[in-house]
Nucleic acid binder design. Structure first.
Lengths: 192, 192
DNA sequence: AAGTAAACTTGACCTATGGCAAGAAATGGA
DNA sequence: TCCATTTCTTGCCATAGGTCAAGTTTACTT
């Protein structure tokens, strides 16, 4: 049940090999087909996933009904809607896989048990969350200080697989620009 | 040592009145004068504050050396740099008070002790963090879907005291616009 | 293999916001 | 109370990116 991927994700100075084994043992393998929803707006999440293979994105609808991609998930990353899972409230976001995916799922109840019985695990969780918060803030800062082109190039560096596999409109909405603008940015980039 | 403000901040379904008392007892009152720094870029935070009276902001410098306000803290809110405090790494942000402030401080070591000994406290912490993450994401979405004017009006509703007390340039950089633009937005708003 | 829908590109024009610079108003010492 | 800074406003012009609409190209479906 445990495999290299999970071991890597749960690596933490305060977690022993045995504890990591216990944590990994609570995960079950699940499969998704391109286009499947992992979570729909309005529902309460009661699990999270670790993405072994494939790509996913989260998105919301704005007042005009356009969908805005809020995040991309690549291999090794945790697919989760934190607010819904931890505050036990309906999700405001949707999560959908962009390609066929292989994931490891852990249920909230199992998570809760070890969260309180393994001290290092709540440390791990806090560290993960604090990193997420940091990245989210960085994104807001990037929206303020970087041009659309720069934001595109940063994404290209951070998540090259996304650029290769996600449709342009999802990338554009994530970057906060229109499809047309992104298409022009790409054209300009190609020339260089 | 405990007072209404702290009781309110630590209110949580899994925390008993006694536990909240224990938590509150670890806080010490501290004072800041307008302009004082609570945390400077490059240092590792080892405390956080609960703001009883006054206003503060966090900010970073962009590549041109302009300061970008990343957050405002109002009464009742927790002044904290999560990444630095919980990952024990140097802060990338600065935190500075905008007015004279009265705060309640708790040291990281004390926090750590009760984080692991009071189960409800780590739940409280997780809930708080998950709410912060949600707000940070909302901010990024707002940068994408809302006009500068709308962002201003939202801030005006959410933190009216900020608008009344922070200099325009801080508000402008927080909103991701220039001083001049904000000044024009205000003018337009006043007319209506 | 054909047909349809989705994804992407491109052109012409438009608009919100930026950049700069000058002046007015407010604020904070000494 | 006066001077020196900040802070804020405003005008003029520049520009990144938006809007709309017409093509292409690509990718599914049967």
């Amino acid at each position: 049940m445990d495999n290299g991927l999970l071991l890597q994700v749960y690596e933490h100075p305060l977690l022993s090999r045995e504890e990591i084994g216990t944590i990994c043992a609570l995960h079950k393998k699940v499969y998704f087909r391109k286009g499947d929803f992992v979570l729909k707006e309005g529902l309460v999440a009661d699990e999270y996933l670790i993405l072994e293979e494939g790509l996913a994105r989260s998105f919301v609808y704005d007042y005009n009904g356009n969908d805005i991609t809020t995040n991309f998930f690549a291999q090794n990353e945790i697919i989760i809607e934190v607010s819904s899972l931890f505050q036990r409230i309906p999700s405001k976001e949707n999560i959908q896989v962009l390609t066929d995916c292989i994931c490891w799922k852990i249920d909230f109840d199992d998570f809760q048990n070890i969260y309180h019985s393994i001290a290092g695990f709540s440390e791990w969780g806090r560290a993960w969350m604090s990193q997420s918060l940091f990245e989210s803030k960085q994104r807001a800062i990037s929206m303020i200080t970087d041009s659309a082109m720069k934001r595109y190039h940063k994404l290209l560096e951070e998540k090259p697989l996304v650029i290769q596999n996600a449709p342009l409109k999802h990338i554009a909405s994530y970057l906060g620009i229109t499809d047309s603008s992104l298409s022009r940015i790409r054209k300009a980039t190609a020339r260089t």
